[in-house]
Nucleic acid binder design. Structure first.
Lengths: 230, 230
DNA sequence: TTTTAATTACTGACTGGTTAGTAATTAAAT
DNA sequence: ATTTAATTACTAACCAGTCAGTAATTAAAA
């Protein structure tokens, strides 16, 4: 299919003929391997991704992979976990910043998610988790509890406070978080699936700001949703 | 798995006990096979689904599969196409019904999508298409043009009319359709991935109605979004 | 109707290509 | 010289796709 491939990226040897460098970088390898693995798992799925391919993208041979990971499955788990910590940390940081400003917290959460997760390489993880949930139920459960449910709780708290303080009108709290975040997940998924096949999709910033504007208008009912419009 | 097998040649059939019917149903087979295939592709992905598994779920042997489909890929395409026609037809029908009632059309579209697509077996197709887009770019392009872009255009037209008639406030039309539909796609994807792993998720009806309520409040700005609240 | 022939739907053991994982080997670093 | 990072060559298992053969059904002959 893909086809051009060529060599395996000889890391730009100085000049002479094709001498492969064969560098040794024990400490940097795991990161490089999980990054390559994540990109390919997101693009093609777990089963359709060949270990040779992952190794080639990371600039090593397949055997090297097994110096750092016990199995393909272990590599998958490591690649996912790589994206879990940043997501959690980013979420926690927000509570400190917008602790008692519901409108700012909702806006900040959505913008921060897109900036730090959705628009980065981690933006492919939701698509990957949804696709592989049945094949890796434990990983999916872990991801759900460690990342999704935490984010959901954070958003729900923000909205609950907004309702309590009269800024937001009453809405069903049990469904509000997925309603707020799903357009962003959808955009991230889109960019990691269909978008590469057709030229020029929607503008992410416009999409994001329109979403924020729409839901804040919806939440605030009659009153205007105060705060800087970016 | 099955494993009774026994010897190599099952010529001895008279035993009387466990001989399966081996019914002949030439006309019903393709449907049964695509339905089984779709369910398994949605659950595990294309590459991770074994043809033996699909055949077993449809109650036939793997050889039979090849009487009706040329290859695993052909079966995949057939399974997707199976879900394309209903989606298109459902969309077209709506324009006739709510041709000049923007609020009703938006509400009707979202409810109809969930009822006729999202909550059915076809509800797994978006997840499947996103996951396999890079592996089957032609199928993904076809699905995008035949289904997604049509639905997007339909929704955009509805909102544009609403703005023109003063019912909706002005919003960015280029992003409004995915913003309206993505929470539903997300719910359908959720139910076909993580939900089966954890007991009791959100209530689909509550989720759907809250979404409709929220976006219509957002679109209508100050004024109330008239119409029956279900 | 009963028997026999022809056809059709289906089966499951087999094969050949593919690939995750391993063992033997080489090269760099200390 | 010894240790360790990395490569290469290999193996065992798996699975899409095939095909020789079997059971069910239909048609024709007796």
């Amino acid at each position: 299919m893909a086809g051009k491939a060529g060599k395996t990226l000889p890391t730009a040897a100085k000049a002479g003929a094709e001498v492969r460098p064969r560098r040794r970088r024990k400490d940097a390898r795991p990161q490089e391997l999980t990054a390559a693995a994540l990109a390919l798992f997101v693009e093609k799925g777990f089963a359709a991704t060949r270990l040779d391919e992952i190794a080639a993208r990371a600039g090593v041979s397949k055997g090297t992979l097994y110096l750092y990971f016990d199995s393909k499955e272990a590599l998958f788990k490591a690649a996912i976990e790589e994206g879990v910590l940043p997501a959690i940390e980013a979420g926690e940081a927000l509570l400190d910043e917008y602790g008692d400003d519901p409108v700012g917290l909702v806006r900040g959460f959505l913008r921060a998610w897109w900036e730090q997760i959705g628009s980065t390489a981690y933006g492919g993880i939701p698509k990957l988790m949804f696709a592989e949930a049945a094949n890796f139920p434990e990983v999916a459960r872990y991801y759900n509890e460690a990342v999704i449910q935490r984010g959901v709780a954070l958003l729900r708290t923000a909205v609950a406070r907004g309702i309590a303080s009269g800024v937001f009108r009453p809405v069903e709290l049990s469904v509000i978080s997925p309603l707020l975040i799903s357009p962003l997940i959808h955009l991230a998924t889109w960019r990691n699936s269909i978008a590469p096949l057709c030229g020029a999709g929607v503008d992410p910033d416009c999409y994001l700001e329109t979403h924020i504007d729409l839901v804040l208008h919806g939440l605030c009912a009659g009153k205007k949703p105060d705060g800087e419009p970016r």
